[in-house]
């Protein structure tokens, strides 16, 4: 349920880059972001993971001061998003979900424009623009108009533009959306490099991305944070069942029936048996199958994925 704007004063805590206090946004009858209370530590790479329409971009738009919260507030590097939007804007670098570049400008000109909009000294703007073009591997095309760039190159520039003002907090909204796996890896490498020096807030609906990059993950669904922690925490804490996968020949119907009686979920297809329950003993199952005359070709314990975590919490798959 939506509550009123809290009466308490949002107290800044120096160790946090972002603090939200009952942050809420309602569009008509839709509650896009529902009373989110979240702390992102300085120097942390925090990932908002959730399906499309979960409220990730709405949350980010509020943190960037592009959207007014319906109620609640947030502190970004100690500045209140409702009271001092321009101070907030001067300490963040934002890479939006859509690749938004000025098409008839070169990458240098695009970067310089944003450096100037951030009111950096002209000399510094020129130096940083040059530097970033090199970091992103675009130096060969530095003087070509952006409209002739490939999707991957545009994406890299899209991220670079968030870094021109050397902000302490970088916000990346779906930084690899629509990229091929190879380009995605390249972008990941850059983001991983950032993580050592900056606070990064990232949204994604790619599980691998959150798993690979994030220090902490907040799973968001229906405008609410439904789970919060490291990838490992989420997998171990949120999943209370274990799954064993056995490939075997000569699986007797009787054996399967007996296992189905004993364990919560037993599925068999094409000689692969998947057994899931809160308590499954790997050795016991393998021994039992062996003794029943089955010929075991392989057997392993399946590690839970973030997708399992997501299904477990929300009852639906992340990718639809």
């Amino acid at each position: 349920m939506i509550t009123e704007t809290p009466l308490f004063e949002a107290k800044p805590d120096d160790s946090f880059a972002i603090q939200t206090f009952n942050l809420t946004r309602i569009f008509g009858k839709v509650v896009a972001v529902d009373n989110i209370n979240l702390n992102v530590k300085k120097g942390e790479l925090f990932a908002f993971l959730g399906p499309n329409g979960a409220g990730k971009t709405t949350s980010i738009s509020m943190l960037c001061c592009l959207l007014k919260p319906s109620s609640g507030t947030a502190l970004v590097m100690g500045h209140d998003i409702n009271k001092s939007p321009y101070q907030v804007k001067s300490v963040i670098g934002v890479s939006p979900q859509d690749t938004t570049l000025s098409d008839f400008l070169t990458p240098i000109e695009n970067l310089e424009l944003f450096g100037n909009l951030h009111r950096l000294p002209p000399k510094q703007v020129k130096e940083r623009a040059r530097e970033l073009v090199e970091t992103m591997g675009l130096e060969d095309r530095a003087n070509d108009q952006v409209r002739r760039f490939s999707g991957g190159m545009k994406r890299r520039l899209n991220i670079a533009m968030a870094l021109i003002n050397d902000p302490p907090l970088i916000i990346l909204d779906e930084p690899t959306l629509g990229l091929d796996p190879q380009s995605r890896r390249v972008v990941w490498k850059y983001i991983a490099r950032l993580k050592k020096e900056k606070t990064v807030l990232l949204t994604t609906h790619y599980l691998e991305e959150a798993d690979f990059l994030a220090d902490r993950i907040g799973i968001i669904d229906g405008g609410k944070i439904v789970a919060l922690g490291t990838a490992l925490d989420l997998k171990t804490d949120m999943i209370d069942t274990r799954t064993i996968v056995v490939k075997a020949w000569n699986l007797a119907q009787k054996t399967i029936a007996q296992l189905q009686e004993k364990y919560e979920d037993v599925q068999v297809s094409n000689g692969t048996m998947t057994i899931t329950d809160k308590q499954v003993d790997f050795k016991e199952i393998v021994d039992y199958l062996h003794n029943s005359g089955a010929i075991i070709r392989s057997a392993h314990i399946k590690e839970p994925t973030l997708d399992d975590v997501f299904i477990n919490i929300t009852g639906k798959e992340l990718r639809e």
Binding site: C64, C65, L66, Y86, Q87, K89, S90, I92, V94, P96, D98, T100, L101, S102, F114, L117, H118, R119, M161, N165
Partner: peptide
């Protein structure tokens, strides 16, 4: 339309 304006609005431009 391209949301470039929105991006420029994330800077402290008045």
């Amino acid at each position: 339309g391209t949301r470039f304006l929105q991006r420029m609005m994330t800077t402290p431009t008045r």
